[in-house]
Design a protein around this nucleic acid. Structure first.
Lengths: 341, 341
DNA sequence: CTGAAAGCGCTTACAG
DNA sequence: CTGAAAGCGCTTACAG
């Protein structure tokens, strides 16, 4: 709208509600009622007149005005981690494929409910301003760990749903998978395959005991401990190269199975093991986590724990929309057995 | 904003420009001038007073109101293909990792210029309504081939930038890579490696002569023809499984190199070839297209053509923002030689 | 069932 | 340099 453009034909000015009202021979208020489905207040005949006028004029409601006049904006803010920026811990600046997939899932859920998504992936300190400025109805925090963002927004009355986080705050909603159960699932599976010398690979358990990898780790450890076994640990970032480089240590440790904190790590590890002449799963059984597409593509195909992304996207939107949604939705992860174990 | 929530403390009402004005002892108009950097119209002393009041009150401008009152919305619509929906031709419903990466790049570019992104990935027929409703300043079309969308929006005065498309429309801007050159790059490389029996794999050249794969195909064919060689063709969707299944035909054809229309196809092909006992690159040299992360991860690492995504994201935003941006920005692709060739 | 009017929070000519 | 006023396009009590 900012820029005027040379137009060969005539520029159709966007009709407003007043134009529709005039065209239909009614008041703007009446048009508004029809538009918003307040049919109890309008006669059938009037409804038809308005609808005809809307069609005739090609009227499209201006949601900006609608939002300003006190109604809902139908916009949901999605706060994403600053993967491209300096905040990121990922030295490769390589994107977890998970995000793209999740954004599409979320968008579809939002659209089905009449919302649109507004993205923000900048620095956390500027996130509040973003959310407050845009008249957003709610915010979904993905991979975001804002220290006081949640309280700040709560004071402004904005609904917040935090995805895949464990930090508990008053009045904030959570959607996540039972990560500990996921780790346990992987461990139980490896045990059932007769593995006895496990290694957990990836994540920063000491530094971020609140992040998913730490939960996966604890879930796996508990299972092995109950079987009288202890699990080695190798911390590291969530990247292919981290997994690749870990192959050497894995070999030195003489382990016979690996619970990787993410598929991408497992993929790197398997290639590293292959180059060292170790066979998967014969010498080392490997499980990943996330069930990203790559896990089906590499050979051997990766056994992994499915995050249930579609269900989580749906739960997230439901949690945003429903007044009485619970404070916490926890979905059960699912083991996907393939060739690597 | 839609929902009222129980708040333990008091709910801080968002201060408005009037509150700031009152606090600073000036008029709302003056506050607006300061907020918008119209400093020539305000004395230094007043500017300070206003700024102080803004800080005191924690004022954040309501961009919805700002947009409505005739100014820019600072919102850009991003139209994505309906990969999850019925429109999609991708039977696996598997997301091209390209999109996630591109969205992040675009968001960063947009943010740096003061815009936010608003996503839409629904049916094409509803896209116009989406764009018109939200008071968007411009739209970026990614993988979208709207028949008359462009003209429709042009009549409404909305800036459009079409990404990776070749359809020429009056007054629409394009950003893309020189796909024909990319195909040529791959072919020249394979020729220089002594390959003489090429196959082009993927895309629907007859059905969609306007889509990138068709251009890549023609670029590659031209190079081989000039060397006196003819190129086999195998059309198909852009998916791992399509590549995997093509391995059989590739072997039957007795070709010694493959120009794949996408990395994901090449990845599937290489695994298929491996299972048939063919070695890459010894028996068959393979090139992909896109340079997605997976191309570095599979073994042998895939030789591919880089799309120059970051540059394209920047060019797209520049094209949206700059009044006098050209109608067409074409970036040169780049060959990335790895192990598969 | 329908409409006149005020208001959402900002911006922008227009006066002064 | 500063402010009063109208307006952006919609919604919502409030009358009738």
């Amino acid at each position: 709208m900012a820029r005027t453009k040379r137009v060969d034909g005539f520029r159709a000015p966007k009709p407003t509600i007043v134009d529709v009202a005039r065209h239909a021979g009614v008041s703007a208020a009446t048009v508004s009622y029809v538009l918003n489905g307040r049919f109890s207040q309008v006669s059938e005949k009037t409804i038809d007149k308005v609808r005809l006028a809307v069609a005739d004029l090609g009227y499209v409601k201006n949601l900006t005005a609608s939002a300003l006049s006190g109604r809902r904006s139908n916009l949901i803010g999605v706060l994403l981690p600053d993967v491209l920026g300096a905040d990121s811990r990922n030295e490769q600046a390589e994107l977890n494929p998970f995000y793209g997939e999740f954004i599409f899932l979320l968008e579809a859920e939002a659209r089905a409910r009449g919302y649109a998504l507004c993205l923000y992936a900048g620095r956390q300190k500027d996130a509040v301003e973003f959310l407050l400025q845009r008249h957003l109805e709610a915010a979904a925090l993905i991979g975001f760990c804002p220290p006081d963002l949640q309280m700040l927004l709560d004071r402004k009355g904005m609904t917040l749903v935090v995805y895949d986080s464990f930090r508990a705050h008053e009045g904030v909603r959570f959607v996540r998978t039972d990560e500990e159960r996921g780790g346990a699932l992987a461990a139980e599976h490896l045990l059932s395959r007769g593995r006895r010398k496990p290694l957990f690979l990836g994540g920063y358990m000491a530094e971020f005991p609140d992040h998913p990898p730490a939960y996966r780790f604890r879930g796996a450890r508990k299972v092995f401990e109950q079987a009288g076994l202890s699990m080695e640990v190798l911390e590291g970032p969530t990247s292919y190269s981290a997994g690749f480089e870990a192959a050497e240590t894995a070999v030195q440790l003489g382990i016979d199975c690996v619970v990787a904190a993410a598929d991408i790590i497992a993929a790197g590890l398997m290639e590293g093991l292959r180059q060292k002449g170790r066979r998967v799963p014969d010498d080392v059984a490997v499980t990943g986590y996330d069930n990203i597409p790559i896990s089906r593509h590499i050979r051997p195909q990766l056994t992994t724990v499915d995050q249930r992304l579609p269900e989580k996207a749906a739960a997230l939107m439901a949690s945003i929309e429903e007044e009485d949604a619970g404070e916490l939705v926890v979905l059960e992860p699912r083991l996907v057995v393939r060739q690597s174990s």
